[in-house]
Amino acid sequence: MASSMNWEAARDRLRKLREEQHRCSDEVVSLWEDVLCANSYRLGDELWMVHEQVCIAALDCGNKDVAMMNLHALQEQFPNSMRVRRLRGLFFESQENYDKALKIYDAILDIDETNTLIRKRKIAILKAKDDIRGAIKELNVYVERFMSDYEAWMELCDLYLQEQDYTKAAFCLEELIMSNPHSHLYHEKYAEIKYTQGGIENMCTARRYFAQSLKLNPNNMRALYGLFLSASNVASSKSKDAKTKKDNIKYAAWAAEQITKQYKEVARKKEVDTSSQLTSILHMMDEIQITQTS
């Protein structure tokens, strides 16, 4: 597929994947192997970035040969670079030779104690060894020192979720929301955690955060479903007064209407038939509505 691509298109695609932080490692490797490897002399200074990107992607795919090739090219160009030494560490990690990787990382940390990338690698090794508790402990020490590293907060949140420690995961997301209050995804995820925690108060919080997420991005389908489900849940609970229930029925109806509207919109744009999906959605919503009234 990729072999018919010209090298400029391949370069642009790699650039886009790099900037938007996609993890399509197999695509990166095949773009390199099929197109860019033969045209690498045309890339100029961008070549080194591409080498790094392809090397990591190849490790991700378990493609040792391609990774080695790119790593050697980088090592020859930058023999003293910390970033290349980190790549060597990554290579050992992919071979599950964690002791050797740790040796490299410790040597770098001896020279440069503030190298956050290396510190994060050491945490990732704990994660790879399935020592989630250890990783959480280390990551807590890390975020205490580097409080503005939001990637780390996100990782910590996911690790807590893996341990099903929802209260702490929610705290991490609160940090993230404060870092970027305009991100609808953070609000959505926070609402999802609150929803998972359950209980009527958490459900109300979840509904509010789903609503905020929708305010920031009205096309967020997941938040629409979340709003619908959380509002239905609140409406069907016994501990709420009549007015709250009535309001929540209204919210759920609004979300349901928006969801059907979105489906129709997609059907119109892509000219596909979504009527069967629509019927099943309406069916599902009716069922939830029935359980509310009963």
Binding site: Q21, K120, I125, E151, E188, K189
Partner: peptide
């Protein structure tokens, strides 16, 4: 943006 790219954290990749 979707969660797929926002939640992708290159510095915490594991390869196992």
């Amino acid at each position: 943006r979707t969660w797929d790219t926002l939640g992708n954290r290159p510095s915490f990749y594991t390869f196992s």
